[in-house]
Design a protein around this nucleic acid. Structure first.
Lengths: 348, 348
DNA sequence: CTGTTAGCGCGTTCAA
DNA sequence: TTGAACGCGCTAACAG
């Protein structure tokens, strides 16, 4: 046994290179390479010897060196603005899944809402020669600044679109969400339907409201709202708004809330008032957060934004673009769907 | 202008290499390298010309090629088992922050609880020549299987420890958490203190309970519990347990819940029963989830597990090990801290 | 079928 | 101060 061989007992060692394997198998580097990749014809016996040597030495091929020639790194950057957010995670998860299946790894960066940090992360990612980039919006889904038109890699904005229509963006269809929620209430016989909004400066808030209003208008109904110019996404605000709405319109029999937390707040207020759900009043939330929607009394019907699918789609688009496929610029609206539970239909 | 030069209007092009910059500046590659790195003496005029050329061509140095020689990639893998989990995110976030400051990037992989997928991800990460690895536990913090003793890179287990005491693990001190919670209740004058547990098969559940029990025993008190062998982390279960406890021990004046969701359930039950919080009964939760703790009525006192700090610590350990520092194997318990809100102290 | 050679992009010797 | 040459680990093109 030559002194260049590493004992198997030492376990996989970082230092083991293709040259070591080739030497141990008594062949040249290129033959070893061919034998291991299996993409070229190699003598049966030779292949066995090489594979055996590779296994014995604990050879782990370097993806870095491999991709040095091809130009591709098999790596995609994901740039986000709040990891604490409950929304970026499913997107990230979906993207990771779609890419991982194609043997592409994710380089994750969190800019924490700081533009300077974002530029720095971007530079780092480009230096690492990512093949593509997914920019996942932060807490709000309002259009965000573009990273610029001339990046050397395909970029897809997910969850929050880019302001630049020349960029590729995929976002959840909040308007459709509002429509689906209100239509569901109408279909279950509700005719006095109110909307509880969160922070009115959020585009998503306005779109969800608009979707609900449009859907009701089609049936000749008006969406009941509380005319407050402020507002937030807290349950406190939700309780306040619910109370005011129920005072002003005591005959409310349906509520669309712009988030699950607001919906939960409405449920709490209804309980305090002795109104039963869904018999007296039906409630629909938004986001379909498992932690909330399946824990309320009764469990909450909610609009699921399909964030994981959003992430998958973003990954697909990056992947497609990076393989030369044509990708249409602009904002792609992705469908949402309603998850019906007991807060609108008894024993759903 | 020579035909080899790229117009600035084309924007940064992936193809721009150091050789291009050197040619444009009329110097050799090595001189260009020195000029840009600044680590060698270069003529003042030369440096300017090189820098100008690099800027004009939109040169982005390849971190890959740079580190090809050094062996290090400036990359750390993070292997997790559930991205949807609310707990891995802060850990990941803390790690990313600690590493990002040192110009190290994070390669994220989600194994989704599948051992096979985990091995595959591990292989991919090693092929990408990560400098270190952080394994972030999944939904539960029970000890998890070791990835093995002879990986070529330093590995740190965070949140959920490795079963192998030879590995390096950092976890939150759940026992201390239970102690802190119970002690706080004692210090605010509570003497009939109950514990609401979640899924009893979770180590964390038992440890939190044990910590509370020990703390009370030191004051000659007994921890009141519901003797159920089943149990889960849902609010439904929390409401059921709270009801039973309050029926069996009507004089309860303090409750430690093993999670914020269970605590919230207790608050709901207390409200239904007309008991005021914190006057009649004080409630402490676990996890300090912002979405819950700051939204309950009243806001919830809770044990914060310091997960972000946990992630930072894990990153520090990896970083230290990879710089040749000695790292003590075993499980390192990290401190938790209590965040006091209105559910235990009025106007906290 | 196998070995030799060249080169991916960069940093870093060593000479000039 | 500058430049030529080598090597990091691997794959591809070309000979043998």
């Amino acid at each position: 046994m030559s002194s260049t061989e590493v004992s198997g007992a030492m376990g996989p060692s970082r230092g083991v290179t293709l040259a070591d394997v080739a030497r141990a198998a008594g062949v040249s580097k290129s033959t070893a390479s061919k034998a291991l990749s299996g993409r070229y014809d190699v003598g049966g016996g030779t292949r066995e010897r090489v594979v055996e040597a590779a296994t014995r030495l604990g050879f782990t091929p370097s993806a870095i060196a491999r991709n040095l020639t091809s130009g591709r790194t098999g790596t995609v950057g994901v740039l986000t603005n709040d990891l604490e957010g409950r929304f970026v995670i499913p997107v990230l998860s979906g993207a990771e899944e779609a890419l991982g299946a194609g043997e592409i790894s994710v380089l994750l960066c969190d800019a924490r809402g700081d533009a300077v940090r974002e530029r720095r992360h971007l530079r780092t990612l480009l230096e690492r020669r990512i093949d593509g980039l997914i920019v996942v919006g932060g807490a709000r889904t309002d259009p965000r600044p573009s990273l610029g038109p001339d990046l050397p890699v395909p970029v897809v904005y997910a969850y929050a679109p880019s302001v630049d229509p020349g960029d590729v963006s995929v976002v959840a269809d909040d308007v459709q969400g509002g429509t689906v929620a209100a239509t569901h209430l109408w279909e279950t016989g509700r005719r006095r339907i109110a909307f509880i909004g969160g922070d009115p400066t959020f585009v998503a808030n306005a779109e969800r409201e608009a979707g609900a209003r449009t859907a009701l208008a089609a049936h000749g109904l008006e969406l009941l709202v509380d005319d407050a110019s402020n507002g937030s996404w807290t349950e406190r605000w939700g309780r306040l708004t619910a109370s005011r709405l129920l005072t002003r319109y005591p005959d409310i029999d349906g509520i669309v809330a712009a988030s699950d937390m607001l919906a939960r707040a409405a449920l709490d207020v209804l309980r305090d008032l002795g109104r039963t759900v869904p018999d007296d009043v039906a409630v629909v939330g938004f986001d379909n957060l498992p932690m909330i929607a399946t824990n309320t009394r009764p469990e909450l019907t909610s609009v699921d934004l399909g964030l994981e699918a959003l992430g998958r789609r973003a990954a697909e688009l990056v992947f497609s673009a990076l393989n030369g496929g044509e990708v249409t610029p602009g904002v792609e609206l992705r469908p949402v769907h309603l998850v019906v539970r007991d807060s609108t239909v008894r024993n759903a």
